[in-house]
């Protein structure tokens, strides 16, 4: 595929949108301005950006508890996201979902998910619907390395393979299942070996490089769309913040040195260097993009803070399909 300047810039914007929104959300959480749990995606932006840029808008994705990045990379709206994080009526879920359940069906984003691994079977269903209706779309499930120790993942992988469904499995292998290092929780190191076990191809790519992810995802997507059944792309990545929040817990499950070492491979820095070296963008124009997006982020904070909390009546609405109290 030809990776044009437009694609390179688009990848950058997608990553910056995730990064700046999440850094802001992290600051708000630290200053106790956001309720609930916040699982930040910072460090893993190349995966969401690379994969979403390779998809059609209508291709469905299912996400994880660390789901802001997926929705933002697919074009999610800052205002509605920030409002949802604050539990406001103007949020994506009318303030009833929060960070872990953020979704946008218009963007074919079928929801972040508070249950590890639970989005994978749902993506199987979307893939099934795509094939049955012949709409030419594929579904993508993002999941972490830890999710692949859960039964739902295995059932879904086997079913997608057995039914030969148009589905792309994206493993975001950040080496930690919450606070447990990967080697303590599984006896294999590469999750794609699990794809092989169910009879479909898997490949590993550098998940800190958006171009590598984009290219690899594009190759897989083309094959999946042409009816070759499911595939798995394992993106070796890393989260810069803790499992929850910014500072997280005080436990020593990983060293500061390790985190600092990985930050040298910051997907934004990697891509910025490439854009400048290849003459696609100057440092100034990169900064201009960041400034612009930061303004949008700032506006979203304003929007969210000025938005009302939901009325109490909202609590009983949407339990069932009609907007009537349950």
């Amino acid at each position: 595929m030809d990776i044009t300047d437009e694609i390179l810039i688009d990848l950058y914007k997608r990553m910056v949108r995730v990064r700046l929104f999440e850094e802001e959300a992290g600051r708000l959480a630290e200053s106790a301005r956001l309720p609930g749990f916040l699982h930040l995606y910072v460090g893993e932006e190349a995966v969401a950006a690379g994969v979403c840029a390779a998809l059609k808008n209508e291709d469905q994705i299912t996400s994880t508890h660390r789901g802001h990045g997926h929705l933002l990379a697919k074009g999610g709206d800052f205002n509605r996201m920030m409002a949802e994080l604050m539990g406001k009526a103007t949020g994506y879920c009318n303030g009833k979902g929060g960070s872990m359940h953020i979704c946008d069906l218009d963007l074919a984003m079928l929801g972040a998910n508070g249950i590890v691994g639970a989005g994978v079977p749902i993506a199987v269903g979307a893939a099934f619907a795509n094939r049955l209706t012949g709409n030419g779309l594929i579904s993508v499930s993002f999941f972490g390395d830890g999710a692949t120790n859960i039964g739902a993942f295995h059932e879904a992988a086997n079913m997608a393979a057995a039914l030969s469904l148009p589905m792309l499995f994206i493993c975001e292998n950040n080496e930690y299942a919450e606070y447990s290092p990967r080697h303590r929780t599984m006896a294999i190191t590469d999750v794609i070996e699990r794809a092989a076990a169910y009879g479909f191809p898997g490949a590993i790519v550098d998940g800190m490089d958006c171009v590598a992810v984009f290219e690899a995802a594009s190759l897989a997507i083309e094959k999946i769309r042409s009816g070759e059944g499911p595939m798995m792309l394992e993106c070796k990545t890393y989260r810069f913040y803790d499992h929850v929040g910014v500072k997280g817990t005080a436990s020593n499950y990983r060293t500061d040195e390790e985190v600092e070492e990985m930050k040298k491979r910051d997907p934004l820095l990697v891509h910025e260097a490439r854009l400048i070296e290849s003459g696609v963008m100057s440092a100034d124009s990169l900064q201009a993009i960041k400034d612009e997006i930061q303004k949008e982020v700032d506006k979203s904070v304003e929007f969210a803070e000025e938005s009302p909390f939901p009325e109490v009546e909202e609590m009983l609405l949407d339990v069932y399909s009609k907007r009537e109290p349950s």
Binding site: A196, G202, A203, I204, L219, A220, K223, L233
Partner: peptide, 15 residues
């Protein structure tokens, strides 16, 4: 283990 597994008949060499 690289992307050539998507576009060719390359096999996976497991750990």
């Amino acid at each position: 283990k690289d992307v050539r597994r998507f576009v060719s008949a390359a096999s996976l060499n497991s750990d």
